[in-house]
């Protein structure tokens, strides 16, 4: 065993990369759930975003266009869910599960011609001076733009929910849709926008996997990150900064366990492999011991006549 082989700077830098898809998808789902909608289709939207982003960036040669396409693809797929749950008043759990299955199949079909292709490289930020600072430069100033976008998005969502009128309306819709409706807010309108925001975020998270983290397209390559994002939102008590903490914890321990394996630590591989799940849940559950709770209207169907 040789723990000195683990370079903490590189470890932190790569945990940020590993955490970003999860963070993006979770923040999106957090907004959806704060508006009172439970969308279990995160995995399906992520994988659809992954192939949309991959295909478009291969065709156009521009990763940036690819990321935009991924957001579009995710949002478009989420519209299907929005239609089913907000207009056809279908059960949200069933619709969400169906969305995941549909997204997995659709992405596999769309991806037939894109297996084994190299996507155009996404440039890493390289700020002269700042990126050269020892330790901090590598950790803070030498990632791709999407990673910073993820952190910024968390901050924006936090401010929006906590300090703005828009956030107040969104939360009102999520807490008590009848009251919000009585006040004259469009419950369905707010929810559709929230669902599309969640879809775009999940799509972006998926494209981050297929364009930056791997980078390659394969069927089912999101490998359950969408489900982890769903769990993360609950364990983080629907609070943006806790989502960030949870995502970094999960990403960090996933990377750390591979590092420990490579360093030859004498813990069975199976325990190392399950450690990210256990540690993340334990930390977030102990954090949520305060009085935070789910949005009161979460998962309930709204119709103006009721």
């Amino acid at each position: 065993m040789d723990l000195s082989a683990i370079n903490p700077v590189l470890l932190i830098a790569s945990l940020m990369v590993a955490a970003t898809p999860l963070l993006l998808a979770s923040v999106g789902e957090l907004v959806v759930e704060r508006s009172g909608v439970l969308n279990l289709g995160v995995e399906g939207m992520m994988i659809t975003g992954a192939i949309c982003g991959f295909a478009i960036s291969v065709e156009t040669g521009s990763p940036f266009t690819g990321f935009l396409a991924a957001m579009g693809g995710g949002a478009l797929l989420s519209l299907l869910f929005a239609f089913l749950t907000q207009f056809a008043l279908a059960n949200q759990v069933a619709s969400g599960l169906a969305l995941t299955l549909f997204g997995l199949g659709l992405s596999a079909l769309m991806g037939q011609g894109y297996v084994g292709i190299k996507p155009p490289a996404t440039p890493r930020l390289d700020i002269p001076l700042l990126s050269d600072i020892p330790v901090l430069g590598r950790i803070l100033f030498s990632h791709d733009l999407v990673l910073y976008f993820g952190i910024a998005l968390t901050a924006v969502v936090w401010v929006l929910l906590k300090y703005t009128r828009v956030g107040l309306i969104l939360r009102a819709v999520g807490e008590n849709h009848d009251a919000a409706h009585a006040l004259g807010f469009s419950v369905v309108g707010v929810r559709v926008v929230a669902i599309m925001f969640g879809g775009a975020c999940a799509g972006l998270g998926g494209a981050y996997i297929s364009l930056i983290r791997v980078p390659q397209w394969t069927e089912g390559m999101t490998a359950g990150i969408g489900w982890i994002a769903l769990a993360l939102v609950v364990f983080a008590s629907w609070k943006p900064w806790r989502v960030l903490l949870g995502a970094y914890l999960f990403g960090g321990i996933s990377v750390l366990q591979l590092n420990l394996q490579a360093a030859g630590i004498a813990i069975p591989v199976e325990y190392l492999a399950m450690s990210p799940y256990i540690v993340t849940i334990l930390v977030l559950v102990s954090l949520s011991a305060d009085k935070s709770r789910a949005p009161a209207s979460l998962g309930r169907i709204f119709h103006a006549s009721q």
Binding site: A5, N7, S14, A18, I209, A223, L258, N259, A262
Partner: peptide
């Protein structure tokens, strides 16, 4: 030799992570 077991034949994300970790460790 530093050896990492991926427990998969084919999972690009996992394989990429494993390779990155090995590279980070020298």
């Amino acid at each position: 030799f530093k050896i990492v077991w991926a427990y998969t034949w084919f999972d690009p994300a996992k394989e990429a992570d494993a390779a990155s970790v090995l590279i980070e460790q020298g």
